Simulated assay, not measured.
Amino acid sequence: MEVDDPIDFLGEDTSEEEIEKLRAERDDMRDRFMRAMADAENSRKRSERDRKEAENYGGSKLARDMLPVFDNLKRAVDTITDEQREAQAAVIEGIELTMRELLNVFKKHGIDALAPEVGDKFDPNVHEAMFEAALPGTKAGDIIQVMNVGFMIHDRLLRPAQVGVSSTPA
């Protein structure tokens, strides 16, 4: 059956009112379809963003729990004397190797150390002030001591660096 005239297809008694009603229904269906397509695309984008976020930050809790292990290894290495280094070279080398391997694993998973230096400017976005003290020869806001390094996971702060900050010298 070939349809040339839509009015003939609908029947002889089709009024203009019925045609307008059908056009309105068609337009409504088109609008619903476009909204459904937009919702589907938004859901796809949201799912992709959530997947990426889970991939990048899903291990944050484990990483945060591993930071004290790094801190303890660092403290152990920092307290080694020259005499101990000579007497226990193999043990100390093992501790240092373990610490380097831990840092390599962190790096592999997008975790980087924030190691401020004495004299750097305090940044509240990445540093945590543990104390404030007036120290001659420094400016207010200078880092005067570093207690613990901080860590970033990709672009998020995992743990701020713990520092002492100079106040205005008295």
Rank of each mutant, 00 (worst) to 15 (best):
T14L: 06
G59M: 05
L103W: 04
E18L: 04
A115Q: 15
V3E: 12
E25R: 06
G137P: 15
K108P: 05
R49C: 10
A36I: 04
N148I: 01
F122A: 00
V146E: 12
I95E: 10
E83H: 05
E55P: 00
M34P: 03
T81R: 09
G141Y: 06
D8F: 13
G59A: 09
R64P: 02
P124Y: 13
V105Q: 03
E117G: 03
S60I: 02
M66S: 07
K52W: 09
A161I: 08
E12I: 03
G94D: 03
L135A: 14
V69C: 08
T81Y: 12
R75N: 14
F9H: 09
K21E: 13
G94H: 05
G137D: 15
V163L: 02
L158D: 15
A36R: 02
N104T: 00
K74Q: 12
A161L: 14
S15Y: 03
E86C: 02
E12Y: 05
E83R: 09
R30K: 10
A87I: 05
R46D: 10
K52L: 11
K52M: 14
A115C: 05
D31R: 07
E48Q: 06
G164Q: 04
R46P: 04
N72P: 04
T138W: 01
M1S: 05
E25V: 10
E83P: 14
M147P: 06
G110M: 07
F9G: 04
S166V: 03
M130H: 09
K61Q: 15
M1R: 12
K107V: 07
H127R: 12
R46Q: 05
R35Q: 04
M99D: 13
D155H: 08
D142Q: 08
L102Q: 01
V105C: 10
T98D: 06
A134K: 02
G150Q: 04
A90V: 08
R64H: 14
L22F: 06
E20A: 13
A36D: 06
G164A: 13
D5K: 05
D65F: 07
I95V: 14
K107W: 15
A170G: 06
K121A: 06
R100L: 14
L97G: 12
E17C: 10
F106P: 08
T168I: 14
D142W: 03
T79I: 07
L158R: 00
I111V: 04
R85Y: 12
M1Y: 05
M66G: 08
G59Y: 05
K52S: 06
E117K: 11
K74F: 12
R75K: 11
K121R: 11
D28Q: 11
S15C: 00
E41P: 13
A134R: 02
F106W: 03
R51F: 13
P116A: 08
I7T: 02
Y57H: 05
E132T: 06
L22S: 15
L67Y: 04
Q88C: 07
A63M: 08
P6V: 04
M34C: 02
E17S: 15
E16L: 11
N56P: 00
E86P: 12
L97E: 15
G141V: 08
